[in-house]
Amino acid sequence: MNIFRLIGDLSHLLAIIILLRKIWKSRSCAGISGKSQLLFAIVYTSRYLDLLTVYVSMYNTLMKLVFIAASYATCYLIYLKFKATYDHNHDTFRIEFLLVPAVILALLINHDFMALEILWTFSIYLESVAILPQLFMVSKTGEAESITSHYLFALGSYRGLYILNWIYRYAMEDHYDLIAIVAGVVQTVLYCDFFYLYITKVLRGKKLQLPA
C-alpha cells in the first residue's frame, strides 16, 4: 500500500458515498445514469468474485464488500425506490456497445485463460468505459448538478491516482500489469474533458453547463 493507492481508494469510496447520499437526501436520482451504475455493479461483481478464493487483507475484503454493496444499493435506489425520478429519457446510451467489446477483448487479451482471470480482465475493461453513459447523459442534457460533478470528479480522480500508484510500484517493486495500466489510462483520459470543465467552472462556483 502506498499513498497514491490509499488516496485513490478513499477518493473512490468518497465518490460512492457522495452519490448514495445525494440520491437519499434529495429522494431523487435525477441526472444520474442508471446504466452507468448498472455497469459498475457488473464490474464489482465480476472483479471481486475472488473474495471467495483468496484473502488479501481485512482492508481489501472490507473495501470490496463496501463497493459491491454500495453499487447494488445505488441500483436499487435508481431502478426501484426512486424509480419515478429516474430520467430514463436522457439515459439512452446503448450499453451493449460497451459490454460486448469488453467480453470479446477479455477473451482475447488476458493474463491467463481461466474463468476468474477472464472475469477480472472483463471487469477492468468494462470499468474503463462504464462512466460513458453518465458522461453521455450530462452532454445530452448540457448540464450537471454540482453534487453530480463532485461525484464525477472523485470517481475520475481515483483511477488517475492509481496510475501514480502503478508508476510508484513499477519503480519500487518492479511490478506492473499492462492490462490494468492501459485500461486505467483510457479510463482517466475519458474524464479529461470533464476535469477541465470541473476546474474552470464548478470550482469557481458556477454550474457545470456545456456550451450550446
Binding site: N60, M63, H111, W120, N165, D177, A180
Partner: peptide
C-alpha cells in the same frame, strides 16, 4: 506472474 501481485489492488 504479474497478475498475482495485481490482485491485491481494488
Amino acid at each position: 506472474h504479474s497478475f498475482r501481485v495485481q490482485k491485491d489492488e481494488l
